[in-house]
Design a protein around this nucleic acid. Structure first.
Lengths: 199, 199
DNA sequence: CGAGCGATTGAACGCTCTCAAAGTGAGTGG
DNA sequence: CCACTCACTTTGAGAGCGTTCAATCGCTCG
């Protein structure tokens, strides 16, 4: 087990790398993404301190991961983890709970990507970050967005321009407040929730 | 444990039902989906014989499930499964492997929904069904599509009209053959694979 | 034969993308 | 301290892909 520091925009592993390690994040933010042949990118998740990274049952990782901000990770050899699983039965339950939670989040994201408008996607994203921050004991309002517009766009299946326009519009309509472009106040929480749920 | 038969378009459980049972599918096809406030639907998966249904760590299901064709299920009380997990350590490993596999599939689907064109989505879908059929020991070519255009559309984040137009176009271009509207021959497999991967 | 449902086809619209330019802010060097 | 650069964000105008609305086709079933 080793501690590793990664600078912003530096790769942790790539989609086809042999999956030799698993990681836990102790500080920072990580983006997990997949690429298409011509370079199109889909970010499948943002990971924060406490989250696991790199769990898979295949030989290779199914996705790439890189640091968004200066990030600290704990790295385990995968074989070591598998040995631990035999010793500590509780650990497997814990991993199953995590995987189950991630699956539910993935289904929400499919709903977002397949059926929601740009406006609904951006609102859903802001609320998601707010909830996630609150669960991790950080303030849920104002919401802090450590990622760039381009990262948000690649997570929401939009372009940076559309994300920018949508945020501007939400502000004009008094639904959010822009403290700066990485800090957003939630003026009308219940209205935002309705938009995200598609009413 | 009980065997249950479900007719087409009949609900197995709904998104908010208490999650009292887990199921395995022994015959037929099941659709798993989520709904938005105004009725928009996103199908998050099609399940076939051998697949598990209803696994969750929450009180309620996170999605709805219904039969697509006449379907037979085995129903376990969830508590019984939890008891089995204690008795049979291997079972937990198996569930973790399944969840891990589903997560990888979910990430592929996010890429499809967020970044692929209609044409790429339809081709990816056809190939996905072909691979899935082959893994289950059924013919991968021609591909059998048990679901309606509307189900395909709700799975791919498109409309029925777009699915229909796209399939017609693929046929005109000699990339697939339409035996009937539920049976598709894969004329040029490698070309199809390139389209799906975004080249 | 007629009803009804799903699939297909057509035409026009609109949301988001694309391409382009201007604005903003942090960091650098004169 | 200010000018300059560079990256990111915002704003604008126009185009395009997929949607919407509507009509037709084709099959199954009574």
């Amino acid at each position: 087990m080793r501690t590793i520091n990664v600078e912003p925009h530096c790769s942790i592993f790539d989609e086809t790398d042999p999956a030799e390690y698993v990681y836990t994040i102790t500080a920072g933010t990580v983006t997990v993404y997949k690429l298409l042949g011509d370079g199109r990118r889909q970010i499948t998740g943002f990971l924060f301190p406490g989250d696991f990274l790199g769990l898979t049952h295949n030989e290779a990782y199914a996705y790439s991961a890189e640091a968004l901000v200066p990030t600290r990770l704990c790295r385990f050899p995968r074989r070591r983890l598998e040995a631990l699983l035999v010793e500590i039965p509780h650990l497997e339950q814990r991993l199953l709970a995590i995987a189950s939670h991630e699956l539910a989040a993935a289904q929400d994201q499919m709903m977002l990507l397949g059926r929601k408008s740009a406006r609904e996607r951006v609102v859903s994203f802001i609320l998601m970050l707010s909830n996630s921050a609150a669960r991790h004991g950080r303030p849920g309002d104002p919401v802090f967005l450590p990622m760039s517009r381009s990262d948000i766009a690649d997570y929401l299946g939009l372009t940076t321009e559309t994300v920018s326009r949508t945020v501007t519009l939400l502000k004009k309509q008094g639904l959010i407040e822009l403290l700066d472009d990485k800090q957003i106040g939630l003026s009308r929480l219940s209205a935002l929730r309705e938009i995200a749920e598609g009413f």
